[in-house]
Structures are given as structure tokens and as C-alpha cells.
Write a protein that binds this DNA or RNA. Structure first.
Lengths: 229, 229
DNA sequence: GGCCGGATGACAGGCCCGTGACAAATCCTG
DNA sequence: CAGGATTTGTCACGGGCCTGTCATCCGGCC
């Protein structure tokens, strides 16, 4: 049974989270302070996912991530925050969070995101620099993509794109999601920008030998690199 | 393809390591005794990484590191040990190991660490006096730069620049970072000073035969001495 | 066959970056 | 101290790579 760590000072919220965790068939473990949470994350058995409140007495959750990673935990981290604006979101993700959810949240949304994180599994999150799927690697700090240890030249936008895909690997990603998260557009521009860019990226990846992007007709795209080895 | 040296007396463990090495697209070379291992490390072609068991008949692996370094190898060393507690770990790292992994280990963890070492591709030897990347060397105390053992004349500012780049090798370095750390400016001067200096430095390095500085459009620059792929 | 959603190729505009020339500042040297 | 050499910073210009748009093509599906 997979264990999920909840670090959250408000007991009511914590209970709401725990409910969703149980609904997914996982075991919730709750700690109310940062120090306890970090200790639990780095000592006891591995957790699959850590749900981390960003605003806690005793420090910023984002800072805590560094300590958790340094402690060797390979759990995926979902950051919760009342400061739910795009800038915050980006900062959180860059600092090593795997997902970000603004408070207040809908129970269904939390569950959906948790499910996505659990499903990810196939990713090896190493030191918040590398996203690896079999022989496809994305190096965040160098902003490069490698397939079979060969460099694949991608443009800035293509890198944003593949990064977003990678963070949502294995699930359908809609055009709208891409427009919002990669283009920062909150409306449909009425063109096929997304298609074109996905096409270009797909071509480059396939030339390098990676069949990574599938299209889900009428839905969007799915990033699912087949796991060789 | 990169070669990785395995020094380990237990053939079963050695095979497990070799498997991970191959999974990363590298070639494993196995020796079962310390003396053979040291000889291989110092004589034949250069290895990228050496996986060294700490407890071997014939001596302590940590001692062997000194001999390997003395022999001129620039490989990164990963020490394996059954004595896997923090104190040992620290001792190993201080004696010149680049990473430390307790036995028994998870295959994925070994792979992750090997991957990290391969990505690092640098070595600092001798009291932080030398930064070496393949055939590009930076001597901090003498403030000189060498490519293929040939001296490259750089101006003071260019030396500051390449030093900062080297310390952040493999990651995107933004113009702002450079302005802050090399120019001590905490605002954007609105000119292209950085571009010009990077251009000049880049030219000198390339004339000497080192393709070291890549530009990341819209982001900044990346110092990545071609470790090929 | 017609329709719909997606793929692809071509193209134009824009923006970012590289470069050469020049001026100011600093250092060295006699 | 003077004069030259080197270094450092500014600017303007040109070119090339991205990016977004559109028109067209393709392939399934009813």
C-alpha cells in the first residue's frame, strides 16, 4: 500500500486531504509542522507522494523541499498554497515541486492531481534537474533534451512544451492546457499554434529515435515515451 | 562510448553494476582486485567513472583512490561500501571520492548516481586550484586558461567570466547572473556588455579548439565543453 | 463521398544575438 | 609624466533563428 505524507498545519484541511488519499487506496501520514514533516520524509520508509503546504509556521514549504531532496527522498512533491498565482506556481515548480495546487481546492481536483502523480511513477526524478523516461532525458538546468545520450536541438518554446508534457506524462493534455501553461494564453487564439509546435517537436524526437508523443483524437496529446530497456 | 571501470571482488555484484552501466549506454570494464583496478585506471585509456568497492582483499579502496589520482586519472570515483553510515560516507568524500553509495543498493539508485556523475563531467583537483573539463583547464591561482595544453591569453574580465561559467557548468547562466557575479551590477545597464565579452571569450576559446560556450536563446548562455553528446 | 480533426509545408515578421568599429579608461614602460 | 598598448564598455547594424499564421493535404469515420 502506497504511503502519502501530508504536511499541513490546519487539521481540517489535513483531514480533507487524507480523505482523498484514502479514496485512492493509499495510506495518509499526517504531520503538522515542517520539521516533523521533513524528518518523516527523510527517515522512515519511502513515500510515493508528499503533499506540502507552503505556508506553515516554522518556515516556507518551498525551502523545505530542498531539505527533503537533500535527505534523499525520491517522493513526488505536490505543493499547496494560498498564494496561488502563476508566478508562485512557476517558482514552486522550479524549486523542485512536481505539481502545484492553489488553495482553496476542489476535492476532485486534488484527487485528480494525486492520481496523476501516482501514475507518473515511471519518471525518475533525480535531483530536480533531470527528467528521465527510459532513454529520453530532459535536463532542466541546461535546458537540453537527449535521446539515447544524443543531444536533440530544441527551440525555447519546444523545450517549454516538452517539459510540460513530461510533467504530465501518461495523461491526456488538452490544447487548452498547453495554451495556458506554455503560451500563457487564457483564451483560444483560433489558430493551430499548438499543433504546429507539437508537430515540430515530435518530428525532432522521432528523428532521434523516440516515439514519445501520441495524439488523442478530439482530446489532445499524450506524452508516453515507451520505456525501453 | 564512455568507459566505466568497476573494481569489485564479488562477481555477482559486479555483473549487477555492469548491467546498469550498459543501460546507460556505457561500456563496463571489470577488475576484481585493487592492484589490477589501479593499474587499469592509470594505464589504459581514460575512464569517465570508476566504481570502487571499499572492502577488497588487498587493501582499502579509499587508499587506492590516492594511487589512482597520483596516477593521473581524472575519472570521477563512486565508492561502494557495506559500511554505509554517514561517518564513512563523509570520510570517503573527503578523501576524494565524488560520490558514495552504501551496499546493498537499489539498481535504480546506482543508475541515478552514475547518471549524475556522467552529467557532471568535471573534476576539481588539488585544492580548488584546477578546474578541468576534458582538454580545457583553468588554473585559478595562476589565473591562466589552457586548451589542449596550449596557453590561451585572456584578459582579467574574461578570466572572471570563464571562472563563473566553469563553476556553473552545464546549466543555463542568465545575463543577469553574469552582471551580478562578474560585473557586480545589480541592475540591467541596458547595454550588451555581456554579449560582447562572451563573444570575445568564445572566439579565443574556439581559436584554441574548444567549443565551450553555447547560447540559449532568450535565456542566456551555457558553458558545456564538448563532452560530445 | 463528404466531413472533421489533425498534419505539414511555406512564408513573413520579429526579435535576439553576434560583430566590427570606436571611444574611454587603465595599465605599463621608459 | 608622456605615450602607447591593452582592456573595457557602447553603439549600430545585419543576419539568422523562432514563432505564429494560413492554406493545403491527409486519413479516418460516418
Amino acid at each position: 500500500m502506497d504511503r502519502i505524507l501530508i504536511v499541513e498545519d490546519d487539521s481540517e484541511t489535513a483531514e480533507a486531504i487524507a480523505r482523498e488519499v484514502r479514496a485512492l487506496g493509499c495510506t495518509p501520514v499526517w504531520h503538522a509542522t515542517l520539521d516533523e514533516g521533513v524528518a518523516a520524509a527523510t527517515e522512515g520508509g519511502e513515500f510515493r507522494v508528499i503533499v506540502l503546504d507552503r505556508m506553515l509556521p516554522g518556515g516556507d514549504g518551498v525551502e523545505a523541499m530542498a531539505r527533503i531532496r537533500a535527505g534523499g527522498s525520491r517522493a513526488l512533491i505536490l505543493v499547496l498554497s494560498a498564494l496561488g498565482r502563476a508566478a508562485q506556481r512557476v517558482e514552486g515548480l522550479e524549486k523542485g515541486a512536481d505539481d502545484y495546487l492553489p488553495k482553496p481546492f476542489e476535492p476532485e481536483e486534488l484527487r485528480a492531481r494525486l492520481r496523476a502523480l501516482l501514475r507518473r511513477g515511471t519518471i525518475e526524478v533525480l535531483d530536480n534537474d533531470l527528467l528521465a523516461f527510459g532513454d529520453l532525458e530532459i535536463r532542466l538546468k541546461a535546458r537540453t533534451v537527449h535521446v539515447r545520450r544524443n543531444h536533440v536541438a530544441v527551440s525555447p518554446k519546444e523545450f517549454e512544451l516538452i517539459t510540460f508534457f513530461a510533467r504530465n506524462a501518461g495523461q491526456v493534455v488538452t490544447r487548452m492546457q498547453l495554451l495556458e501553461n506554455v503560451w500563457n494564453l487564457h483564451f483560444d487564439p483560433g489558430t493551430n499554434v499548438v499543433d504546429v509546435h507539437v508537430g515540430r517537436l515530435r518530428r525532432k524526437l522521432e528523428e532521434a529515435g523516440a516515439q514519445a508523443i501520441q495524439t488523442a483524437r478530439g482530446e489532445g496529446y499524450i506524452f508516453a515515451p515507451l520505456r525501453a530497456n
